[in-house]
Amino acid sequence: MNVSFFFEVLIGGLLAGVMYSLVALGFVLIYKASGVFNFAQGAMVFLAALTFVSLLERGVNFWLALGVTLAVMVVLGMAIERVVLRPLVNQPPITLFMATIGLTFVLEGLSQAVWGSQPHGLELGIADVPMQWLADSTGMFISQFDLIASGVAAVLVAALALFFQYTRVGRALRAVADDHQAALAVGIPLKNIWAIVWAVAGFVALVAGMLWGARNGVQYALTFIALKALPVLILGGFESILGAIVGGLIIGASEKLAEVYLGPMVGGGIESWFAYVIALLFLLVRPQGLFGEKIIDRV
């Protein structure tokens, strides 16, 4: 086995994993704050990317387009809180989950009804080419784009972690995540907190949408990356930011390695389900995920 090729695949997988983490992060944020498993996160990524690229194509300045898209996502987040979540407060989690499946359809329909359904290319000015110096020195072909994307993701994760840990809003968020009732009792405005979380999740969706869009084009298939993020969540636990990162890395790496080394034996294309099978096997051993808390049923 060629060692440098193995590492090339591994690193490529890890970098792709960071991108999964980025999407998973949006799920974790919302789940932590409101206990909602937001299936629509993928549709939000799609909507953000499509809005951004469509504005760019209409000649809007890059930063203005970014600002407008961000505003759209924030307003959308608040609207979702108002229209979907608030009426469903105190419903079982599974009902909220199904509501977000409905939301997925609404958002997919909305983005394509407004901007059309043809695919777009997105150019961020970062070339998706192997880094020559690395290839020269080690013989590994690692994409420059992947590396920069991972850097962006890392910065975002660090910023969010700091935000959660050290700001007043972050503290309130953690309080809400721990216990809605208790948070309300000490005077934390629950509704505002939820709106903020959905807005932040919208922002994360925008970043994820830009990076994924630049890599694979902005098209309907973008919504499927949410499906890739689900095994990541199972692996990492629904409420752990660290879990989303580690889960993403594990899924990204094992998926690529499996595709390259196992794929040819079974006819290829196993990327579509391999992550799920890992997650499933994992569930049987540790149902709460790597960093999730063990739940004890009280009766």
Binding site: V83, V84, P87, L88, Q91, T95, M98, A99, I101, G102, L103, T104, F105, V106, L107, E108, G109, L110, Q112, A113, S117
Partner: peptide, 16 residues
């Protein structure tokens, strides 16, 4: 696309 939105909207409507 409108059909998608109506489906999704109806789901949310019925759940609520």
């Amino acid at each position: 696309n409108i059909e998608l939105m109506i489906f999704g909207g109806l789901i949310i409507f019925f759940l609520i």
